[in-house]
Design a protein around this nucleic acid. Structure first.
Lengths: 334, 334
DNA sequence: GTGAAAGCGCTAACAG
DNA sequence: CTGTTAGCGCTTTCAC
């Protein structure tokens, strides 16, 4: 825990200049084998470790990208992140990971901190930022927004699925099964939640079921899904199907239904949204509108590096479609 | 995307020296109100953002701690992290988060990278590192190891539960319910997995059930839990209870049992380990040995900051106990 | 209160 | 191939 050895210490010990050490450490080929051996040995003996702060200062590049994740409790974000990391590591870059727990102020603060670290690009996954702030950030470095199609602007690539269309399809799946008293447990105040709710309303209306529209508020957590389903059972005990805003809260809803003695899917059908791998498990076997999560992560990172590498290339807009995975929690209405 | 404004640009625009800008930016009180206003305005107009690399270089402190997480797919780590972050933010520090996906080489690489960033302390959560490497790292900065009680050394604080005792208790719970043909689905090659398996063997042996010991290998993932249970059903169809190495793979086991038409807990009882909040949900309702996850995270960070603040203070060893949460997946043997 | 100057550990021309 | 010389953007004495 004494002062850390620096490049100068290594140079002195190896009897060469610090520039040569710098070259050797980074694996340049313009160093004689002899010097290299000397330097490596000295570094090893000293326990030398390059100082990333000094390096990125001198280099004017941090070799890092920042990733803001909504929250780590919902495992779907790990799926997206896997895709991101794969690409980031492939480029020899570092990922700086932060979360804002869905609080816009905290998200903004975390992004500031990332920017202070001179990240060369930013991937924002399911964030709650004000679009104006997002656009301001995009003036400082390339930005990719994942899972939120409503924000556009120069320097902003968007990778998302059509949440509204997905929600229409999810609701339609229930309608096709013969359900008419279909409720929706929504997500928290956000563009995604709005789109999914709108899709539900649209499908219901198109099917002539506008009068049966029932929406109870939620916030994308399992707790809110459970509470939402409880409310539903109390206030609308006659519903036969529920479209829940995301898989995590759908699991909560499942739990409340079961607690209340309703059988799924015999008494009530439930469909979620996201494609959370855990929910595919036999025990849960949740029907869902699945997004290609890993793939979206990869695409986000690919686009980011395309723009980091070639600053003149433009941001794009990737729109994927989500996919209905009919499983065990939805069935024909009786 | 042009050159970013620096402290010099701000100083020039405000008509003061850069030292004064430095003071003002950091909120020193030895700056006149007048100068401060000028500086803040200039900074605002220029969109100035301090360069964290330069700051940490000049400061010789990064104001960051590093956290290595086993993996983000298992939500229990988010629970631990919540506890950690709460404390870290309270100290005005930044958390640098990395994962190694249980691969020791990648873990080592990530830790190196953290150290190059001059993190002032390290929290390693359920890592797979070689104890010697961990001890070497601890010579460079304070280290806290969470969820792995087997590594000790100077500069290393350990925050864990007694995995072996917990496993004994979990197995004993099944024995107390009258089960005797109790199998174990183990975790991946690691100290934790070994302890939990040892606890199972110990409890079985003490109960005179040594002949009934059955262990199938797993790796702590839901997939391995599912596969493990399938193997069990095939090779030992007469078992009536399973102690699974962690909650995540217990969920997989539940799923395989259900698929095979075994009712839980009527035909087979299942107990997990960890205290994953998702598994408490009514639908799953998994009996488990719960660890105080958030609290362990807080304790880890508390200890780390105690030692960062006072380098002369010594590392400690916090041993928490896990708690049996009997829920719906375990019942009396018939 | 404020500014000048030195230096944190490294990279990057440029000579030789 | 190797060394010298300037910085990178910031903090920190230490004068004034």
């Amino acid at each position: 825990m004494t002062r850390r050895p620096t490049i100068n210490d290594v140079a002195a010990r190896a009897g060469v200049s610090k520039s040569l050490v710098s070259l050797a450490i980074r694996g340049s080929d313009r160093v004689s084998d002899e010097s290299r051996a000397l330097i490596m040995q000295a570094a090893e003996e000293l326990g030398y470790r390059p100082n990333a702060a000094a390096r990125s200062l001198a280099d004017r590049r941090s070799h890092s990208v920042g990733v803001l994740l909504h929250d780590l409790h919902n495992p779907i974000f790990a799926q997206v992140l896997d895709g991101v990391q794969e690409v980031v590591r492939g480029h020899g870059y570092r990922t700086m990971l932060v979360t804002g727990h869905g609080d816009p102020d905290r998200e903004a603060a975390e992004i500031s901190s990332l920017l202070e670290f001179q990240v060369e690009g930013l991937i924002l996954i399911s964030h709650r930022l004000d679009p104006r702030l997002a656009r301001r950030v995009a003036r400082e470095c390339p930005v990719v927004i994942v899972m939120r199609g409503d924000i556009t602007g120069t320097g902003i690539t968007s990778v998302s699925t059509d949440d509204r269309a997905g929600a229409v399809a999810a609701t339609q799946h229930l309608i096709d099964l013969g359900h008419s008293r279909i409720a929706h447990i929504s997500g928290s105040e956000s563009a995604i939640a709005r789109d999914r709710e709108d899709g539900y309303r649209e499908a219901m209306t198109r099917a002539g079921l506008a009068d049966s529209i029932v929406v109870v508020p939620g916030d994308f957590t399992e707790i809110s899904g459970r509470d939402g389903a409880r409310t539903l059972l109390e206030e609308h005990p006659d519903i036969t199907a529920v479209f829940v805003a995301n898989d995590l809260s759908a699991l909560g809803a499942l739990s409340a239904l079961q607690e209340a003695g309703r059988r799924v899917p015999d008494d009530v059908s439930v469909i979620g949204f996201d494609g959370m791998s855990l929910a595919a498990l036999g025990t849960l076997n949740l029907t869902t509108m699945a997004q290609p999560l890993e793939e979206m992560g990869r695409e986000a990172a690919d686009d980011l590096f395309r723009r980091i590498t070639d600053p003149s290339s433009r941001a794009s807009r990737v729109r994927r479609i989500s996919d209905l995975h009919p499983r065990g929690t939805t069935a024909k209405a009786r």
